[in-house]
Write a protein that binds this DNA or RNA. Structure first.
Ligand SMILES: [Mn+2]
Ligand SMILES: [Mn+2]
Ligand SMILES: [Mn+2]
Ligand SMILES: [Mn+2]
Lengths: 217, 217
DNA sequence: CTTATTTTTTAGATTAGACTAAAAATATTT
DNA sequence: AAATATTTTTAGTCTAATCTAAAAAATAAG
């Protein structure tokens, strides 16, 4: 059985590896875990000993097959619990992360699968992130980022890349949420900011924001 | 913030203190926690330092006011989660304890209170144990134990004192569950076994079983 | 009221996970 | 290519929670 610390590391190594697809550095792990590089090194050595990561000194690490399997279970639980909190208990999408961070460590496969059934097998969590099925498989979603749309194209918001509190609260403020249909009105080449039309409201969002919204067209 | 270990100790000291109402011994704590007496001593010293138990060397310990407040929160969470598992996820009453043992440590008052609301403010958990309210208060229930009933008296099963797996599974087997109306047919003075009538079925239960069933008449 | 038994505490060791400071390896500049 | 800067690892320390073995206190027997 893995400790909570080990599980948290596995999950973050998975998240970091997803984006870049290459080896993740000790420093990036330490940053994500809000700890020191030396602590990350210690944990990488332990996880490597357990066969959960492939790690070469000074080069970096990636999840092994076995490690990925473990990570997917944790991601699945995290996203199912977030869905429960929003759909059943009435939390908003910017309030659930920290609680799910704890709930993801509850050990009971039966519980996870029954929760899944109770929620009627959701495919995505409240942030639009896909939920791995009971075998750890994720159904590939063919969304793109808002920043890739051209003027006059439109699409539906299906998720956020950054699910931080501050970003979600900002989206609440400017009234963007999952399911919205957004049309590109103008793109400013100078700073990549984008003027969009959403619910008959025109607003301008920064290029950074546009890069953190997943769209399906 | 308390560690999971500290929380588990507090909860067990509470449970032991409830029954006897007097000081609980180091050994009894160690037994409940499935650990060694020396470990229990260490923890008692730590909890005493934090003002959570009143402890005198070689004599025993009891929860302080502050400790009891903390313990009630954990008991509340444990019983609410058990109720959730049975009422919403379809677990049976003998399957929920170990999972609730983990869930009781999730830190979020909002979550606890919303779960309570979602379950429509249950007064008792699946084993008939009272659920403390959001202020940690338990509504006193005036149940008695089955062993106190006389021949021909009847009453409704409202809870179990022993909520162990084996006892619950035994009750499943002999078809006794919460809500049943039970009538005393005969009491055998030799060994205190009791013949009862339940759902038009006559069965004989041991005195030990009779002492572990709460009845309301 | 001594002696023996049981219970409880202390002393010392171990493990996981974190930290700081220093050393080693790698990457970036001149 | 040498010097400098950055990243990563190692060495050593710390705390929480456990354990075993031994000492101390309390309880029970003779
Ligand atoms: Mn976590
Ligand atoms: Mn999420
Ligand atoms: Mn517990
Ligand atoms: Mn219970």
């Amino acid at each position: 059985m893995l400790s909570q610390a080990e599980e948290n590391y596995l999950k973050e190594i998975y998240a970091l590896g997803e984006e870049t697809q290459k080896l993740v550095s000790t420093n990036s792990i330490a940053k994500k875990m809000r700890t020191k590089a030396s602590s990350a090194t210690d944990m990488l050595q332990k996880l490597a000993n357990k066969g959960l990561v492939d790690y070469t000194k000074y080069k970096g690490a990636r999840l092994s097959k076995k490690g990925e399997t473990r990570a997917m279970v944790i991601v699945r639980k995290h996203r199912l619990w977030e869905t429960f909190l929003v759909d059943k208990l009435g939390f908003s999408w910017d309030e659930v992360h920290d609680i799910a961070e704890q709930l993801e460590h509850i050990q009971s496969k039966t519980l996870t699968d029954r929760l899944d059934a109770f929620l009627e097998y959701p495919s995505h969590d409240p942030h639009g992130h896909p939920i791995p099925n009971t075998n750890g498989k994720i159904v590939a979603s063919e969304s793109i980022i808002l920043a890739e749309l051209k003027v006059d194209q439109e699409g539906i918001v299906v998720g956020v890349k950054d699910a931080s509190d501050s970003f979600l609260k900002y989206l609440n403020k400017i009234n963007i949420t999952i399911g919205d249909t957004i049309k590109i009105v103008e793109i400013e080449p100078f700073d990549n900011s984008v003027t969009i039309d959403n619910n008959a409201q025109q607003i301008t969002i920064s290029g950074n924001v546009a890069k953190n919204l997943y769209i399906k067209s």
